[in-house]
Every structure is written in structure tokens, then in C-alpha cells.
Write a protein that binds this DNA or RNA. Structure first.
Lengths: 236, 236
DNA sequence: GTCTATAGCCGGATAGAC
DNA sequence: GTCTATCCGGCTATAGAC
């Protein structure tokens, strides 16, 4: 309930169980058959290493340019060991993307369920999205950058995910518009604009970091900007 | 003068001499020493082929993943011929990025020079940027996507270019604020927001295409959204 | 100017030792 | 479970024919 009202990032971070270990445990359990390692503690520990290393290396040079030998160096594992955890480079990419999408969807759904008015829901969705993208920054960046290099099926999933988030905003804008709370000319375009602002946080994080702007300040600014654009009545 | 007042994209396209051929002629003349082809007509014709093919292939799989053999297939040239035009894959990347940045800067500077009030300048800068990114869409996408894979010096240039555009908006917002025309809480953050909207046009073009939104509609929407956020008095 | 042929290297993937 | 050794294909780059 209300993980991030008033923009408390720290409390969000604690209440949302989205550590890398959490994610890797899920991945392990879903892929028990493919993964050749039987002891869960060992497997999860190394999966964390592998995924973190993949995200870090890809952030620097891109997934395609990252070699599995780079990955060996970074994780301390050998080529042979790596192949005990995933069946090939392409699959490694897909597993990371799939699991991340699920996690994000789950958290967004939860955040919305506990809000009431359209404006509260929009505000919560914005804050939650920005906070999640802060915690899982490397994943978000990765996911955006690699989207164009995927196979046909994977690309569809990525697009669906993008449109899913946007649809949440479109529906909320429509609802608030019908209730007469917002004054909006074009809900679809407005939702696109919101998405663009959300994305900027993880695409240009270096910039905001350098300027000393915190996640909470950014979220506040975005919520405020949206309230001006849609002319929400009871905006804080 | 006033290339794109009232958002006339077609007239902008004509007046701005930024065809690929134009760009390639400049590149050829600046790299006469490195390029082994003497006849300008032949050289420029093939440079156009090479750069267009590079942008197209990179859009699909990324520059790193694009092989020079892919490039041969796409251009109809052989490996040997390619190396008569550029000294290596890395340099090809740098040449494309450098020349594009120059072109964009030149056009933006020109567009601003012919406007008067702060709001007119902001509006013109927004429209011009969106229109340029429409004409040179592939270059903009390429430039954004490959930025992280560059060498140290090239990366600095890319960041400088990003901040340069943003600075234009920060200064204009400050100026209008001082004149009492805008009501802005945070010019730096507002400029970031504007940049995010500009970028969305070339990062998510597939989405806008699918929805049948034209460049002009998008530019109108962005200008309008900005006017609401900064509460400009004489906004249309 | 443009081609073909080839050098030399590095990538992903696998087999089999420990 | 993890490692080393190795296969083989594709890559960039260059040399030399036409």
C-alpha cells in the first residue's frame, strides 16, 4: 500500500523486493531443467554475478560487442562454467529481458492497485516507474538499448511492453478526463510525453547525477510538469 | 529566414540544404588526402551509398554487429573498394558522427538567428530540431545509439553536443524568465524536459508513424506543452 | 578504381579432464 | 561444478591482379 506517496524513495526500495538476488532466484527456479547446477545457493550466487556482469559490460560496449570471454574475466568463471548456466549468448539476452519485464509489470500493477483517484494513480505510476528504473537502472538501460537487436518474437514482446506502460497512462488520462478532473486535448500524445519523461531518467542518468538531482527531485518535477499540462484541479 | 514558422515542414526541407549528398561532398573535400579516389563525382556517389548503408544496417543490428561484408553487400562495393574511402571501421563511425553534429549545429544556429523574442526563439528551436531529426532521422537514431560505444574523445564530443543543445534552451528560458514572459521554477530541469521531448521523436518514430502522427502535429504538440509548462503569456 | 585472395585474429560453442 | 583445450567460422585489414 502506497509505497511511494510523497516520493519516499528509500521506503520504496525497502518495501519492493527487487534485489538482483530475488530476480535470479526466480530465474533459477524457472530454468531448473536447462541449468546444469543443482545446488541453489551456488547457482543463484553465480547467476547474480553473470547478470550483473552482462549488464555492466553491455552498458559500456553493447551486448553484441561483449564477448563471452569478457564475461569470463568479469565473473571469474570459465567458458565451460558459463555454458552450465545458459545455453548460448542469445538465450542469455532473452532471459534477462523477459525476467526484467515481468518484474517491472508486477511492481507497477501493485502500485496502482492501492490508489484511488485518477490523479493519484497517475502520480503513483510515475513515481513508481521512476523509482523502479533507479533501482534497476542497468536493466532499464540495457533493455532500451538492445531492443532493436532482437529477434522477431522478442522484439514484439519489447514493443508490447512499451505500449502496455503507455496504455496505463492513456486509460488514466481518459478516465480523469471523463470525470472532468483533467483538461486534456490529446490523451495519447500526452501519455507519450509522460513516457518520454520517464525514460529520460534512465537514459540520461549521467546528466542528472552530475547535476546532483536526486530521484525524488526528478519525480517531483515530472509529476508537477504533468499536472500543468493536464491542468489537474487538486494538484499539490 | 524563418524556415519553419507555423510548422511548415515541407518548406523547411527545401530551404535547408541537408541532403545526404550535400553532407558527403563536405566529407569528401575535408578528407581528400585520406580518400584514394580522385574523381569527385565518383567519390561522392559512393560515399552516399556507404553512409546510407551504414546508417540503415546499424539501425537494424547496431554498428558493432554490422560487418564490413554486410556493408559490401548493401553498397555493391568490394572490401578493397571500401578501404579506398575510409581507413577502417572505427574511423567510418567517427566521420559519420562528426559531420552530422556539425550539420545540426549549423542549422540550429541559423534558425535562431532569424527570430526575435525568447518565446519565438524557443519555438523555432523546437520546430527546427524536430524537423532536422525527421530529415536526418537515421543519423539521429544512430548517433544516440552508438554514443556509448565510442572512444574517450569521441564520447566527450557527443556529450558536449548534447549539452550544447540543452544550453540553448536553458539560456532562452533564463532570458524569458528575466523578461517576465515565462514563469519557470527550474530552467535547467525544464530544458532537460524539452530535450527529452525532442528525442522522443526520433527514438520512437515507429510509434508515431503507426499512429499516423505527422512531424508537424508532433512539433505543434510539443510547442503547446512547453507553453503550458512555462506559462508563456502570448502563446498561440 | 575496383576486384579477388588471403593473412591473421578472435568469436561462440563443445568435449573431456579433474 | 568447473576448467582447459580445441574446432571452426567470420571478422578486419591488406596485397596484388586487372
Amino acid at each position: 500500500m502506497n509505497r511511494c506517496k510523497q516520493g519516499n524513495f528509500e521506503s520504496f526500495k525497502k518495501s519492493a523486493a527487487l534485489s538482483m538476488e530475488e530476480i535470479c532466484r526466480e530465474i533459477y527456479q524457472e530454468n531448473r531443467d536447462r541449468i546444469r547446477i543443482k545446488k541453489e545457493t551456488v547457482a543463484v550466487k553465480n547467476l547474480v554475478k553473470i547478470f550483473n556482469a552482462t549488464l555492466a559490460l553491455s552498458a559500456k560496449k553493447g551486448f553484441q560487442a561483449m564477448s563471452l570471454r569478457d564475461l569470463c574475466r568479469e565473473t571469474g568463471l570459465s567458458m565451460g562454467a558459463l555454458y552450465a548456466y545458459f545455453p548460448g549468448k542469445e538465450m542469455l539476452l532473452e532471459i534477462i529481458l523477459l525476467q526484467g519485464r515481468r518484474m517491472v509489470k508486477k511492481i507497477l500493477d501493485e502500485a496502482l492497485a492501492s490508489e484511488n483517484t485518477s490523479w493519484e494513480k497517475i502520480s503513483a505510476a510515475v513515481r513508481t516507474h521512476i523509482y523502479v528504473s533507479e533501482v534497476l537502472h542497468e536493466w532499464f538501460f540495457f533493455s532500451f538499448m538492445e531492443a532493436k537487436n532482437l529477434g522477431k518474437e522478442e522484439q514484439k514482446a519489447a514493443i508490447a511492453s512499451e505500449l502496455f506502460t503507455e496504455k496505463i497512462f492513456i486509460d488514466l488520462l481518459d478516465a480523469g478526463s471523463a470525470e472532468g478532473i483533467f483538461k486534456i486535448e490529446n490523451p495519447v500524445m500526452t501519455a507519450s510525453l509522460i513516457k518520454a519523461m520517464l525514460q529520460d531518467w534512465y537514459l540520461k542518468r549521467w546528466k542528472y547525477r552530475k547535476r546532483g538531482i536526486s530521484v525524488e527531485e526528478y519525480a517531483d518535477f515530472v509529476v508537477n510538469a504533468i499536472s500543468k499540462i493536464i491542468r489537474v484541479a487538486e494538484a499539490v
